[in-house]
Nucleic acid binder design. Structure first.
Length: 490
RNA sequence: GGCGGGUUGGCGGAGAGGUUACGCAGCGGAUUGCAAAUCCGUGAAGACCGGUUCGAUUCCGGUACCCGCCUCCA
């Protein structure tokens, strides 16, 4: 069996991954706060952990991996948006407006992440569906002396957990020296954070032993992971920005509530996204969503390709340049497969995976190296002498391996190739190919190539690629193909 | 101020203590009426300063610069 190695933020080393239970490998990843469209940075953990999900499914079996990613639908920003709509004169109740806002945001999120080729997690719990579990956990922490109630708030007593700060490599004293923590009068210690806070009448709230209120952000993930994955599970993932304080707080809550559980064994953090060398932010004017890119006709596969070209542990720079290069490479893969009808018209046979690619992926998700293996294979498949010297059966085998390997990275090349083929009016292309052959014969006889060249450039301007070799003529559809222009040439 | 990440050839981006990354661009060649595409080949690197070593871009220390987190902005 393939051994997966992962860099564990908790130990700061690359470790062999050994599941607690190989028949149920469990992973939790912090999901989005659903107040607006996902921006490009949100896509990075989604893609990174999607690849890990696929890899785990490949190694342990599709039915033996549980992947939980939450939706945070209790949040000030959601409330603010709902109140804004209310302020604009919407007659519906705040609850209805909030519900509408979160529903539509979750729908968008699914659309956008689907477009990136990300599999849906096994479970996508919403915070509002697990308030009871959060209240129970909060009460448990109070009972065990790790939390206290003050002024309608319940706060976690950070000093009561000696392991606090280990994940992010900070000491409590250092953080206080930083002196940027909010010092609320009801806190015993400046580092203490909120587990439960009171709600005003015009905000969503739930009844609790401490009055009507709502959960703090951190307790949501602790409670939901406990409910769906148990007190100990294999992998906890998220962006490096969440390492502190969110993940630190999750650990404190879960370890104090269930000391025997151990919580997540492996912690993984993806580095941040940048845009043209800068952090993406509204103030810099380089802020955009996944949907913005999709609308600009940058397909999800291209976005995925760019993301996977950089190892998850490094900052990744999104540039137009990279998107262009990714588009070309994928077009090459798809174009190469689209003309192999025998391949597209029957179910793919299982001939395994490219071992070098699998090895790269298993080595701490080296997607960059994995992609370069695929590129090398694509070159091999694309008319290289060694490939052409194989018999049909052997060629087919190699193609199956390539497609299956790309699929492990989340590229469905078969589907893309079918779409590509569907775009091409096969009969028309055959007709023009024949005409090119005939014109060339004529031109060679007369020595006048003007008519031939005119036809060729007309086809190019219709968005076709003209490939003429000594003994063959081939037309290929490019992304700018325009059927109307082709029709006009008849 | 504290903590973390980065710095590789023209560009993007990996691995490995000594032996080709890979891709794009460039250059040369094959093919072609020309071109495109494809194929074959090829030059080019390791921020800086020390240390360890027979040997470091790869390990250790320091410096510089860039980025992020510490503020419920992923």
């Amino acid at each position: 069996m393939t051994t997966i190695r992962l860099t564990n933020t908790k130990t700061r080393t690359k470790e062999d991954f050994v599941p607690i239970d190989p028949t149920n490998v469990r992973m939790y990843v912090c999901g989005p706060t659903v107040y607006d469209r996902a921006h490009l940075g949100n896509a990075r953990p989604v893609i990174v952990f999607d690849v890990l999900f696929r890899l785990l499914r490949h190694v342990y079996g599709a039915d033996h991996v549980t992947y939980v990613r939450n939706f945070t639908d209790v949040d000030d920003k959601i409330n603010a948006e709902a109140q804004r709509r209310k302020g604009l004169g919407d007659p519906r109740s705040l609850e209805e407006l909030i519900r509408e806002r979160t529903e539509e945001t979750i729908r968008w999120y699914h659309e956008d992440m689907d477009a990136l080729g990300a599999l849906r997690p096994t479970e996508e719990p919403r915070a509002t569906e697990w308030i009871g579990a959060m209240i129970t956990m909060t009460q448990d922490l109070i009972d065990k002396g790790h939390a206290y109630e003050k002024a309608g708030h319940v706060l976690f007593r950070v000093r009561s957990y000696t392991g606090y700060g280990k994940l992010s490599g900070r000491s409590v004293d250092d953080m206080i020296a930083g002196a940027r923590v909010e010092v609320a009068p009801f806190k015993e210690d400046p580092m203490d954070f909120v587990l439960w806070k009171p709600s005003t009448d015009d905000l969503p709230g739930w009844d609790s032993p401490w009055g009507r209120g709502r959960p703090g952000w951190h307790i949501e993930c602790s409670a939901m992971s406990r409910e769906l994955l148990g007190e100990s599970f294999d992998i906890h993932g998220g962006g490096i920005d969440l390492q502190f304080p969110h993940h630190e707080n999750e650990i404190a809550q879960s370890m104090c509530a269930h000391p025997e559980g151990g919580f997540a064994k492996v912690w993984m953090h993806n580095e941040m996204l940048q845009v043209e060398g800068k952090k993406m932010s509204k103030s810099l004017g380089n802020f955009f969503t996944v949907r913005d890119l999709l609308d600009k006709e940058i397909p999800g596969d291209v976005i995925r390709f760019v993301f996977l070209s950089t190892h998850y542990s490094k900052p990744m720079d999104w540039t137009e340049e990279k998107a262009k290069a990714a588009r070309n490479e994928i077009a090459r893969w798809v174009g190469m497969l689209a003309i192999r009808h025998d391949l597209l018209d029957k179910p793919l046979e299982d001939h395994g995976l490219d071992n070098e690619m699998l090895e790269a992926l298993s080595d701490d998700l080296n997607t960059s190296l994995a992609i370069s293996r695929l590129m090398r294979t694509a070159r091999f498949l694309d008319n290289s002498p060694e490939f052409m010297s194989l018999d049909d059966r052997a060629q087919y085998r190699e193609e199956c391996i390539f497609i299956a390997s790309a699929r492990l990275l989340g590229f469905d090349l078969l589907e893309l190739a079918k779409k590509e083929r569907a775009r091409a009016p096969v009969k028309d292309l055959g007709y023009f190919e024949l005409r090119l052959v005939q014109e060339r014969i004529t031109a060679r006889e007369t020595g006048d190539f003007a008519v031939l060249d005119a036809l060729k450039s007309a086809l190019v301007s219709a968005g076709l690629e003209v490939r003429m070799s000594k003994d063959a003529v081939e037309l290929k559809v490019t992304p700018v193909f325009d059927p109307a222009k082709l029709e006009a040439l008849k």
